[in-house]
Every structure is written in C-alpha cells, then in structure tokens.
Simulated scan of single mutants.
Amino acid sequence: MIGPPDFLDRVAAGLVWFTALLSAINGAFMLFFPMDWYDFIPTVRATGPSNLHFISDIGIAYLGCALILAYAAANLRMRWLSALAGGFWLLAHGALHFYELLTGLCSPDRFWADFPGTIGIPLLVPIAVAILFARQRVAPAGLPRSVFVALTNSLTPSESGYVHELAKAPGHALEKFMHFMPASSHRHAAPANLFSAAQIGSVLVEDCGPCALTSAQVGLADGVDRARLNAALSGGGELKDDDALAFRFGEAIARQSVEASEYGEEIERRFGRTVRLELALAAAMVRAYPAIKRGLGLTTACSVTRLAI
C-alpha cells in the first residue's frame, strides 16, 4: 500500500463515500420526517401501518452507518475494516429482504423495487474493499492472524520467522505489530526511487541481507527500476545524483551520523520538507525489522546473502 492514492483507490473510496451520503440522507429523512418518509417510499405501506418510533429508530441506524462509512472513506486503505463494520447493518438489512423473498413474505415485484436501496447500494462497500484487496492496497491491521501469517510466508518468507513468534506471543503482539507496519512504509510525496534508496541504505547498515532484499522487492513492486535497486543493494556506489543522496541519507540516519542533517537539508532544498520527513521516517522505522530479528537470533548477515533481485 505504498504511495499516494491512485485512480482505483479513489474509485474505491468514492463508492464508500457515496454509500455514506445516501445512508445519511435516508437516515435523516427517517429520523426527522418519519411520516413523510413512510408516504414517500411506495413499497413501505405493504409492510403494515406506520410506526413513527420504529421508523426513527431505523433512521438512527442508517445515520450511524453513514458516520462509520464516512470515517472509513477518508482513509480507506487504513480503515477498510471500519468500512466493513459500517456496511454490516446495511448488508444485513438487505439480507433480510432477500430472506423475505425466499420465504414468500415479500413479493418479487416489491423486492426488485427495493433492491437498489436495500441491496445494491450496500454492496458497494464490499466491492470497494475487494478492489483494494485485489491490488494489495490495504493495511494489514484487521487481517485474521492466520491470513497474515500465510501471506507473510508466501510474499516475504524471510520475515516469516519472527512473524510466527509474534503470532504465538501473548497479549495480541502480532496485532500491535500490524498497526506499526504502515508507518514504516508511508510514502505520499516522496518519489519511489528515493524512498527505496533511503530504506536500503538504512537497512544495509544493520547488516541484515534478507531485510535489504525485502526492501528492494517492495521497491520493485512500487515501480522502481531493477537496476537502481541492485545498485543500492551493492552498496550505493553506482547510484547517481538524487538516488545517491537518498541512499546516503538513510545510511547516515542508521549510523546516527551528523551527516544526516546535511543530507536532509539538501533533500529538503531539492524536494521539500515533506519528502525529507517521509525519507527520514522510512529510514528510521525500517531498522525495526532487522533489530527484531537480531534480538531473536534470526538475522542473516549481508555478507552471506546474495544481494540482488
């Protein structure tokens, strides 16, 4: 989920915003004008006489869903689980309509007349989340433990050792760790090549070969040229201009060198304060992974790892 939101990310967020907006409008209509709502929806009369208190209650439920969905849509990649929570009641309400159709409590004509509002619109929420999941654009927090461990084994096997230990540790250690992970991969304004160079420069100082390769693989998935990543993995000597500057910046941060300030000022002069912040955050936080491995005796030195992708 590295990088700023792209077109499909915005589409997914837009679907959730749209659902939130319509839920808010319907909820407010039911809460403040229950009798008008009862008269306005033609299929409602078939369910029985009006109950103003009950209509207002349902209006509050719609407003609650709208609030949760709006919160989720503002940062859907991080808050996808909130989107599912906000859409749960709406989908359950639609499922009830479907159950009534199957049992004969609702005629097919009434079901299809209600379908756009009771089922069609709520389905936009899981569709939006599915768009993000299909492209691996979601934060890991919220994934079931077994799913996260299986994904780690498949996508980054070099990280699986300590992840398995975190999964077994008491006190929800793995869940807390999953909340930490997005901070170490936060990139919004920084160019992907600079971000990867800073991370690799930092992690090489920690002498963890698998960690360096993981950072390079993430950079490759983020669109960074393979030759640039291999140049960074080889020590940064062949990197040019901005890439070399970002690499040395990450390296200096990891070494706690006074040169970090000099490199940082030059990065800020060329790219702005936000890019400097993102590179500093990446270089500082990526060190946590080799540090955890070293503490658990799971580190493999760069000298015994082939550093190339």
Results as ranks from 00 to 15, higher is better:
F271I: 03
A139N: 09
R270N: 01
S261E: 15
G295W: 12
D241A: 06
H172M: 13
E265F: 05
N75F: 00
P182D: 02
M35H: 15
L151D: 05
C302L: 09
I253N: 04
G117T: 09
I58Q: 12
R287A: 14
I200K: 03
A24S: 05
R187P: 02
L102R: 15
V138S: 03
L298N: 08
L281A: 10
D57K: 11
A288Q: 13
A139H: 10
P170D: 02
A280E: 09
L81P: 04
F148Y: 15
Q136S: 12
Y38T: 01
A73E: 06
G219P: 05
I119V: 15
A280D: 02
A192P: 07
D222W: 10
H97C: 10
P140S: 10
M181L: 14
R306N: 14
A198S: 11
L239M: 06
A212S: 13
D9H: 09
H53Y: 12
F40M: 14
Y162S: 07
L277V: 15
Y162A: 07
I309W: 02
A189K: 07
G219L: 07
E206G: 08
A139G: 04
S107P: 01
A280F: 06
A28W: 14
Y71W: 09
L84K: 08
K293W: 11
A13F: 01
G201T: 00
G142S: 10
D241R: 00
G104V: 04
L124D: 06
F195Y: 14
G86D: 00
A12T: 11
R135P: 04
S146R: 13
A198D: 07
H53F: 13
A73C: 03
Y263W: 13
W37Y: 13
G27C: 03
L67H: 09
P108A: 06
S50A: 15
H172C: 08
D36W: 14
H188Y: 11
I121K: 06
I60A: 14
P108V: 00
P4Q: 08
